[in-house]
Design a protein around this nucleic acid. Structure first.
Lengths: 234, 234
DNA sequence: CCAAAAGTGTTTTCTCTACACCCATGT
DNA sequence: ACATGGGTGTAGAGAAAACACTTTTGG
């Protein structure tokens, strides 16, 4: 570093959130997108974002944006990367730090969101997005695919209680392919991270499917002993 | 985004480079660190960095910093993440985008570097670093470990011609453990990414070890056909 | 001729894959 | 009693791990 701080230029810094949601009923992975309400690119689809304030950590800015849109806090969220091409935003030079987060669509009031100009769109039919947001979404999807294989984040997209069928459907929605039922169950159950409950889900079948719950404590304990989550099934 | 651009604050944005180097002779993975020449934290060890200029992409800023220090261009470099806590730099609020890069120590003039206050330090004995640079290094190391397993980046740390022994020693330095020679060779050679040369390296043994070269073109072709590099050996 | 490092295969173990039938229950 | 979705095990293939001796050659 040759220059003094004061001799260096300052930049607008924004956060953009790639919000993944899973809908247990229509079994689709979705993205929360907004219709932009101001120029430039007013009326176009975009990720939701916001500027980083003076005395605000970047992570906090992302949490704030996410909270404003969903009304939820304590969601899974992770930094994806920073997009800093000079011309990425035609309005001004804005550096954007992208975050992705996972939320269960069942948890939130979808109608209220749509009033705010936010809409859930299936990842199989994402509209064109402004600026480099397509690039961000593409990167986030790649990251998500890797993440669900190597860390137990799939549960973030489901309600606390879920059936193995629902868990498998989630993985199928993310991978976009069918998974062998027996191999999937064998593998996930062999990790000993799920607790079988006495309760059954009876809406979708007469027999009913047992509910399970992810045990965070067990996972932490296993991890301390060098265990790695791995759910790469055929 | 509720605010207009002009109502939002601007921030100093810097890049910091985690520069990994591998020394073929002492078989150690190293980091290029500098003794900071100005306040705050003058005289302390730090990563090399620099501010992002007005009309400069962030990636370009990182390339520039790396070039200034090493005199090299076209090096392997990738974004690691952005560090944006308000108080991370006591001098001012500076948002830092961290990059890591891989270079062969043999390629550069080490003496010239040391004159610039830059020093290669083994990763097994990294001094305390300023600000959150320790955190960056830790993250970069984790990323590197993952990267060398899943992408052919190890070659970036070696000269163009290298022996299989040298390649294995590099992986041993990165993983910090011994690897089985026969399994390692079997696996890397079965990928068909290395070309055996007619030349032998004769400094370290009487018999001499054949030189190999990484074939970038083959790798690209294989990748197009869905091949994934994987070098996870015991 | 011998020290020192390079090079080379096989067996065993484990993990991944493929695959089909019975079970429970509401109507 | 039957239709519907839930739940279960095993055999074969392929990948990973363990392991020790022969080759070459400069001094």
């Amino acid at each position: 570093m040759l220059k003094l701080y004061s001799e260096s230029p300052k930049h607008y810094v924004a956060v953009d959130c790639i919000i993944f949601g899973y809908d247990i009923t229509d079994k689709e992975l979705k993205l929360l997108l907004i219709k932009r309400s101001f120029d430039p690119a007013k009326g176009k689809w975009s990720l939701s974002g916001g500027f980083v304030e003076e005395n605000e950590d970047i992570d906090s800015a992302a949490t704030r944006v996410l909270g404003t849109l969903t009304g939820l806090s304590d969601l899974f969220m992770e930094q994806l990367g920073t997009y800093g091409s000079v011309d990425r935003d035609p309005g001004a030079r804005v550096i954007s730090v992208a975050y992705y987060s996972l939320i269960g669509i069942h948890e939130i009031n979808t109608e209220k969101q749509e009033q705010n100009g936010a809409h859930w769109r299936s990842i199989s039919a994402i509209p064109a997005l402004i600026f480099d947001h397509d690039k961000m979404v593409k990167a986030a999807l790649a990251e998500l695919l890797h993440k669900v294989k190597t860390q137990p984040v799939g549960f973030e997209l489901l309600p606390e209680k879920f059936t193995l069928v629902q868990l498998q459907e989630l993985y199928e929605a993310v991978y976009q392919r069918k998974i062998d039922k027996r191999n999937f169950r064998k593998k996930i159950l062999s990790m000993n991270l799920l607790e079988k409950l006495d309760e059954k889900e009876k809406q979708t079948s007469k027999k009913g499917a047992y509910y399970y719950r992810f045990n965070e404590e067990k996972y932490k304990a296993f991890k301390r002993n060098g265990f790695f989550f791995n759910l790469d099934v055929n």
